[in-house]
Amino acid sequence: MIEVKGLTKSFKNKVAVEDVSFSVDCGEVLGLLGPNGAGKTTTIRILATVLKPDAGTAWVAGEDVCENPAAARKKIGVLTSEVGLYERLTAREILKYFGQLHGMNMGMINDRIEEMVELLDMGDFIDLRAGTFSTGMKRKVAIARTILHDPPVILFDEPTAGLDLMAALAIYRFVHRCREEGKAVIYSTHIMGEAARLSDHLAIIDNGKIVGRGKLQTLEEKLGVSGLEQVFLRLVGEEVETSSSNSLV
């Protein structure tokens, strides 16, 4: 469902991502794990067609993000740490706006909104203006906005940043639900616990390059360590010292 081949992107002579490749099947969650500045957000933005790669390409649900960005955008939903709601619109109006932009007719939009209201327990505030919302309420609206058009591909970019435990748990439940619905999910994070908890397999990125890829168990066995933290440190920490072939791509 998601195929990434040789993505490369630079900003002002700084390489943000270099030769990044991975794939995600339907009903799978790929944890894109890396420290701040590793290239996670750039990768997500390229897949979301917000940025264009300098080299390489990617396919989401069969659509080439470079050749057919508009068609690709129809197939993706993106949830980031920055919610970005329109404060003078109600939650319902925001969802209608995005539903219309995704080409849905009003009947479909209204039905889906009612589904979201029930799924995310938004009944109390669906018709209130977003400017009055708490963080948790805003996050729910953002989740609804992400899946309103029922995209087969969901991209998460550090969605729990700044959230308390209860709100974060709600995000985790949502990720599980996406997997159960057969969606292809990329979950980008720098938090080991999240990556270990949510991911079916991992892509570990550092300094713009994928330094490790595969299921956690496989990585542990190959590196002879236990736990994601050790895997990560072995791949990232030792690479800083030796720049040798501990990369497992």
């Binding site: 129809k74 980031t80 920055e82 970005g84 709601l85 995005f98």
Partner: peptide, 11 residues
């Protein structure tokens, strides 16, 4: 408001 990026991910 950081509402531009979600808008850019629409078709």
């Amino acid at each position: 408001r950081a509402s531009l990026e979600p808008l850019l991910t629409t078709p």
